[in-house]
Simulated assay, not measured.
Amino acid sequence: MNITIELAGGAELLFGNQRKHEVTLPESDKQWTMATLLPWIRDNLLQERGELFMQGKSVRPGILVLVNDADWELAGELDYVIENKDNIMFISTLHGG
């Protein structure tokens, strides 16, 4: 299954300053959901400071998640079943000061 993962608002800094990742997810007996995708992203794409991306089993507060340009809350958050060609974007809304 092929998906696009995009990062913005500073989140890309945790991923080697790369804003866009074209990803082929490994075949699985179970459906890919956001709950299974997040740890996969942490283990395979994240390059530093995982605590700034994830908290527990979800993204940290302050990271907006869009699935195909819609807030993931409308899609079911962690329960959303990922489909081929989905575009998933993570936008950090936190800024230092």
Results as ranks from 00 to 15, higher is better:
P26K: 07
N84I: 01
T4L: 14
M34I: 15
F90T: 11
K20W: 00
N17I: 00
V59C: 11
M34D: 04
L7Y: 04
V65D: 02
T33W: 01
P26V: 10
G56S: 07
E12F: 07
E73T: 12
T36A: 13
V23P: 02
I82A: 04
A75S: 12
H21C: 03
L66S: 05
A11R: 01
V65P: 01
S92E: 05
D43V: 01
K85I: 00
M34S: 05
G9M: 07
H21D: 02
I3R: 02
L52Q: 13
E12N: 12
L14R: 04
W72H: 05
L74K: 12
V23I: 15
L52V: 02
G50P: 05
T24Q: 14
I82M: 05
G76N: 10
L25N: 07
G62L: 07
S58K: 14
L66D: 04
D29C: 02
L37A: 09
E48H: 06
G62C: 09
I5N: 07
D29W: 00
Y80W: 04
V81H: 10
E27G: 03
A8K: 06
Q55C: 04
L13A: 14
G9R: 10
Q55M: 10
G76Q: 09
I91R: 05
A70M: 10
L74H: 07
L38N: 03
I5K: 05
A8C: 01
